[in-house]
């Protein structure tokens, strides 16, 4: 399947669950297993569990009052609002873009197809700082469109549109890279059958295509949303850090932290840590549903 080939950098992907036959007949002695498990868990504990715990412990280090005040602070609330607004625009936008890109790549052969495949992965392979910089070079005062935008009184950089654009850019690959392999492995037989039986294009999409890709789509949306709400580097470059106006939650965390207001910084950060935990649970649930549906449809796998 050439779906895997194009997805350089696809580390977390739903389609990795297609084949799962495990070899457990041969194994190591008990004591070797125990040591291996111990070392692996110690490594994960040191790098994952301890830092995550520290977010919540530090958030409540000065008591629940400080925690609550940090979150209902008007500047924090405006950061939360901006983050939600950004996600509400960026996720549906990338749902549409991702579906369009997957559809054209999986269903058609056209000149520039390979270039498009490479382009989809681009935001994952460049530094978020460089992703943000691209928008500064385009829309900044000295940028390509800078003087035109200035003449017409349109503000993109250091304003909400810039934050939304940068977020859409860095989260673009999530939906497409989940849907392309599913569409490719599905093939076109079912859609052709629907078409021959007289379905309209729209009916074909809702009744045949969508049910086949729904788990991949949901998986992509979950990851896309997590990144959209948590993006730091790219947004930091284009935001201008105007308090109460162009600060997202991660940027607000940075400001609090740099002011040595640690308890408040961790309190606000704990919201994002909570989002990460919800994301992991949702993601695991989708993986589980996808796996049980795949094995129901193809018992031989």
């Amino acid at each position: 399947m050439d779906g895997g080939e194009i997805m350089a950098g696809a580390a977390t992907s739903l389609t990795r669950f297609n084949a799962s036959a495990s070899a457990k007949t041969l194994t190591e002695p008990r004591w070797v297993q125990r040591i291996a498990i111990g070392v692996a868990l110690a490594f994960l504990g040191l790098f994952l569990v301890v830092p995550l715990l520290s977010v919540f412990v530090n958030a409540f280090s000065k008591g629940a009052g400080v925690f609550a005040r940090a979150i209902v602070d008007p500047i924090a609330l405006s950061a939360i609002k901006l983050t939600l607004l950004t996600a509400v625009i960026a996720v549906p936008a990338n749902l549409v873009f991702g579906l369009a890109a997957s559809w054209s790549i999986a269903r058609f052969r056209f000149p520039g197809r390979n270039f498009l495949i490479t382009l989809i992965d681009l935001p994952f392979s460049v530094s978020p700082v460089i992703s943000g910089m691209v928008f500064v070079l385009m829309f900044g005062a000295q940028g390509w469109f800078g003087s035109w935008l200035g003449d017409h009184g349109i503000k993109i950089l250091f304003a909400v549109p810039g934050i939304v654009l940068a977020t859409i850019f860095v989260t673009f690959p999530f939906v497409a890279r989940e849907v392309i392999p599913l569409m490719q492995s599905q093939g076109t037989d079912e859609e052709e059958a629907a078409f021959v039986l007289g379905a309209s294009g729209w009916q074909m999409f809702w009744r045949v295509t969508l049910p086949n890709i729904k788990w991949g789509l949901l998986y992509g949306i979950i990851l896309c949303n997590a990144r959209a709400m948590g993006e730091f580097g790219a947004v930091s470059v284009v935001s201008g850090h105007i308090r109460g106006r162009t600060n997202t939650i991660p940027l607000h965390v940075e400001i609090l932290y740099n002011e040595y207001n640690f308890a408040a910084a961790f309190a606000v950060a704990s919201l994002l840590a909570l989002l990460a935990l919800v994301t992991l649970v949702a993601k695991t649930w989708v993986e589980w549903r996808f796996r049980s549906e795949t094995s129901a449809r193809h018992p031989e796998l």
Binding site: M229, G230, V253, E254, A276, K283
Partner: peptide, 20 residues
């Protein structure tokens, strides 16, 4: 499931947590 945490946790949060 925890292995994917670095994908889900915003980098700014990871940064201040690891620093702490």
């Amino acid at each position: 499931a925890m292995v994917d945490m670095p994908f889900a946790l915003p980098t700014a949060v990871a940064g201040i947590a690891l620093t702490a």
